[in-house]
Amino acid sequence: MLDVAMRLFAQLRPWFNLVLFLGLLAPAHASDNTADRGDLRVTPAPRHPSPEYKVTAGMDGEIYPVFANYASLQKQNERSFGVLSVNVSNPGETPLRQRIAVKVAGWSDQEIQRVDLAPGASKLYMFAPTFLPRLYNNHEIIAATAQVSIADISGASVYETTLPVRLRSAEDMYWGSNFRYAPFIASWVTPHDLRVESVLGRAKNFTVDHRLPGYESWKSAAQQEQETYREARAIFTALKRMGVSYVKSSTTFGDHRNVSERVRMPRVSLGQNSANCIDAAVMYASLFENLGMDATVVIVPGHAYAGVRLAKDSGKFLFLDVALTGLTTFEAAVASAEKGMARYAPNSVKKVLIQQARDSGIYPMP
């Protein structure tokens, strides 16, 4: 019996060895298969950081036509501020080349600027699209929508957004803290307006020789001063005869009401024969500038005056309390201005020389 068992074991031994070999081999193959399956999984591509955009508009979301007009007249690379600004940051490792298009729907043309930023760089792009005439004929605060579209160099859109804005009245002047933006009052000085020229046509009739020649270089400084007094008196008299008188109308709406006010354009004041102090100041400045004379608007706390240089290249000015146009005489208006301005310390008197404003790019609003 034992012999039979031994012979049977001897016959089956090769099969036992094969099973044992396969049993030892299987875990190794299983391990290899696991490794193979791991190698076949797709490794996610590294993510590149995306450009970042920050969009702002106007003064805390309010767009003043006076600033829109000024900025749109500046070259893109010379602007100190814009109607709408886009700050672009490039956190990537390659240059960023894109195109930004901006407009205020229904109110402006579209302005386009190109972006070319080095890796890690950022830049503020200031936009001032040309506004349509309707902006300068708008007399109340109104809602609008600014649209920003950004595309890559192939034209594919990469970013779009809209921004609610409020368009201020064309008559709203933003003075800013301590009258920082006072020079922009020159935007209301409109020497070529037909109503302004009509006043000068009337005023010449109140001079002896029916002339308003402005400065005449062949005259001495003393003679020019006399002529300036004569012409200023004629303008004052013409406006008084037309019935121009003081009417306060400076209320405005929106934010910044403590540093902004309504200022009527000369054509409006002349059409209504009504003007408060700042309305009348820009009206007189328009008349003087039309004659080629150096006009100034003087701002003091709560009041405004108009002035004109007495002679070409002279440091002396004739000032008028123009709010008194329909109330008193020319001489009384001159005396009132001198007395009123003398009450304030020099740092409280802001004199805006219209020619200086023109030289800095501040031109009449449409």
Rank of each mutant, 00 (worst) to 15 (best):
R180L: 07
L324H: 04
Q356M: 08
M293R: 05
Y125Q: 02
A143L: 03
L212M: 04
P65T: 00
Q355K: 10
S249N: 15
N258V: 05
F236A: 08
R168L: 13
K103F: 11
G201K: 02
S169H: 03
P95S: 09
W107Y: 01
V86C: 04
P129I: 05
T329Q: 05
V263W: 01
R168P: 09
V158N: 12
V83I: 03
D60Q: 13
A275M: 07
R37Y: 11
S154M: 05
R267N: 14
V42Q: 11
G302V: 08
D32W: 13
R7G: 14
Q356F: 06
N77D: 15
E338S: 07
M6G: 11
T162M: 08
S72P: 02
A101H: 10
L212I: 10
T228A: 11
A332E: 13
I141S: 15
Y125C: 06
S348M: 11
R267P: 02
V352Q: 04
Y363S: 06
L135M: 13
Q272D: 15
N90P: 10
N17W: 12
V263K: 00
A281Y: 00
V308S: 05
A121T: 10
F330R: 00
Y215I: 06
T94S: 14
D109S: 07
K75C: 11
R168D: 15
P27T: 05
I354P: 01
R257N: 08
M341L: 13
N276R: 00
T251P: 01
V297M: 06
D359G: 12
R233M: 06
A28W: 14
V19D: 00
T130E: 08
P266K: 03
I142K: 11
G214R: 07
